[in-house]
Simulated scan of single mutants.
Amino acid sequence: MSSELKRVWFPGPVIIGAGPSGLAAAACLKEKGVPSLILERENCIASLWKMKTYDRLKLHLPKKFCQLPYMEFPSEISDYLTKEQFISYLDAYAKRYSIDPMFGEEVRLAEYDSNLGFWRVQTKEFDFICRWLIVSAGENAEPVLPEITGISDFQGRVLHSSLYENGADFEGERVLVVGCGNSGMEISLDLCNSGAQTSLVVRNKLHVLPREMFGRSTFALSMGLLKWFPRKLVDCFLLLCSWFILGDTARYGFKRPEVGPLELKATKGKTPVLDVGTLDRIKTGQIKVVPSIHKFTTTGVEFSDGRVEEFGSVILATGYRSNVCSWLKEAEFFNQKGYPQNPFPNSWKGKKGLYSVGFTGRGLSAESMDAKKVAEDIARQWHSETKHLPMEL
């Protein structure tokens, strides 16, 4: 530990990350009368939403599944929030609970000091000492940039989806989107609507479901059915309905896995795609589905089936990953990929005062549940003690 760092004793928990899960944790703690301190590496809350999402983004689930604890969305807002609406909600949430993170504080090291019996969290300038540490840096801390043969030789534009804003700069251009999850599908639609000649790489099998069935959110319908029927039966129902609504997706390049969408999500963490109109563009040939990439050339791509095509730009919609393992020195609670060892609903609590919020793989509703559990657990300890460490900032 460097002696040049300013040591700060904080009596309550230190929360790492000021995204929705970090805000939820802080608000739940405040409701329980426990002070907390959020450390955020960027200069704003919800930096992923504010700085690394495309303009047309909407929440894929109805708003009732996306609200944070103790604060509902305004009733006049539509069921599927836009990016701007959700950001406004998060800003209002932080203001309501007077959440004031320390910005520009990227955590370089966090480890339990057995001599002190406390956690030590180091940034560039500070050495924070705390009894409880809440990891809320999130599942999407760092973009995944795949290593594809020849990509450094490609002379066109290559950018990760975190840098994509809209299709205005791509009009008339041949663009290849790599990655066919929800982001890749929606960016492809945005590019197509902006006049780009869009191709979409579909490498693996995946489930594409309509966003709504029978006038209800597919997600809400699934959650309701799971209360009464086993998961495999609900999967059969979803796939049958999808076939009637969308047709045979294999005809358009989307072969379905042998395992149903809910089963696959529960066992492998793979989220089905909720279609918002991309499939219609694929059916009409306005968006072309292509196989996996064999290698890049200077002007385009050679695909696994031997075809060679030229492209002006490539958008890597290849997702994100956790960065927890790069700074948290702890070998039991988190695995080598930076996710809790135990799956939801047992992914929120570790040992020695270590907690996580935002690693459920099940969206904001599950993260809110974890935030409440963490706050209740810490509050029991906080209120059972007669003395706390002095706060020095």
Rank of each mutant, 00 (worst) to 15 (best):
E4C: 11
V8R: 00
G12H: 05
P13D: 00
V14M: 08
V14G: 03
I15Y: 06
I16E: 12
G22I: 10
G22S: 11
K32V: 00
P35T: 02
P35D: 04
E42L: 15
N43P: 04
L48C: 05
Y54K: 06
Y54Q: 06
L59D: 08
K64T: 07
L68W: 08
M71R: 12
F73N: 06
D79G: 09
K83F: 03
F86I: 11
D91L: 11
A94H: 06
F103Y: 14
L109R: 10
S114H: 01
N115I: 12
V121F: 08
K124Y: 10
F126H: 09
I129V: 15
I129F: 07
C130K: 02
S136A: 15
A141M: 05
P143H: 03
P143S: 11
L145D: 11
E147Y: 09
Q155L: 12
S162H: 15
S162M: 15
L163Y: 11
A168P: 01
D169L: 14
V178D: 00
V178H: 02
C180N: 08
N182S: 11
E186H: 14
E186L: 14
N193I: 10
N193Y: 10
S194N: 12
S199Q: 03
L200G: 09
L200D: 08
V201G: 00
N204P: 00
P210I: 15
R211F: 10
G215R: 05
L226C: 13
K227R: 15
R231P: 10
K232S: 14
V234G: 04
F237W: 04
L238I: 00
L238F: 04
S242A: 15
W243S: 05
L246C: 03
G247R: 06
T249C: 13
A250T: 06
A250C: 03
F254H: 07
R256Q: 12
A266H: 14
T267Y: 14
G269Y: 10
V289Y: 04
K295D: 02
T297Q: 00
T298V: 13
E302C: 09
F303K: 04
S304H: 02
G306N: 12
R307E: 09
R307I: 08
Y320E: 07
R321Q: 10
S322I: 13
N323I: 06
L328E: 02
F333C: 07
N335Y: 07
K337W: 07
Y339K: 09
N342F: 01
K351A: 13
K351S: 11
G353M: 06
L364T: 05
S365G: 08
E367L: 12
S368L: 09
H383G: 09
E392C: 03
L393F: 15
L393H: 05
